[in-house]
């Protein structure tokens, strides 16, 4: 038996949220993140995924051809996760990324200008409408972006990069905060 007990601590447990009129940045609960791997162009699967999510808005996010993320704020038990994987078969496979990827929310009227400092994606509402999501780099860190409101983006990143990306975003937000 190991001398140390492994305890799960939130990746962004020690950061301070940014709250201001123009920009806000806050970590989201580490609930569940399921990476769904299907076939490119499988419209039927894309439609079916909504019913497998927890039903919250923008719970299913596109992540390249034939791939999606199903996310939610509540943690899933092993049984729930297994049931979800079974429900996905045979069209797609699910991979539990709940402890692998961390989500944060950036919002406020200046959010596009803040993110534009780090990524080349066109974030204007016409090119990046509500519910649209994509993977890109912010600085040198690959991150998955989803527009969840007219002036709010969810940013999902690999756990090990979360703190580093947070520091970058905080730095990018500084002039607006």
């Amino acid at each position: 038996m190991s001398e140390f007990r492994i305890t799960l601590r939130p990746a962004l447990g020690s950061v301070t949220s940014i709250v201001s009129e123009n920009i806000a940045l806050t970590p989201l609960p580490e609930g569940h993140v399921v990476h769904v791997l299907g076939k490119p162009g499988d419209e039927a699967l894309a439609k079916r995924l909504g019913s497998l999510s927890d039903g919250s808005a923008h719970a299913v996010r596109a992540a390249g051809p034939g791939q999606w993320f199903i996310v939610g704020n509540a943690a899933k038990s092993h049984a729930d996760m297994t049931a979800l994987f079974e429900a996905l078969k045979p069209d797609a496979y699910g991979v539990d990324q709940s402890q692998g990827r961390v989500r944060m929310l950036a919002s406020g009227p200046m959010v596009e200008r803040m993110l534009a400092k780090g990524t080349a994606v066109d974030l204007s509402l016409t090119q990046f409408p509500l519910g649209h999501s994509t993977t890109s780099v912010i600085g040198h860190i690959a991150a998955h972006l989803t527009r969840v409101a007219d002036d709010a983006f969810e940013i999902m990143v690999l756990r090990g990069f979360a703190e580093s990306l947070w520091d970058d975003l905080a730095h990018m937000s500084a002039e607006f905060a």
Partner: peptide, 10 residues
């Protein structure tokens, strides 16, 4: 073809 115009760094 899937993501639109992106910088070469990606």
């Amino acid at each position: 073809p899937h993501c639109g115009k992106r910088p070469k760094e990606e």
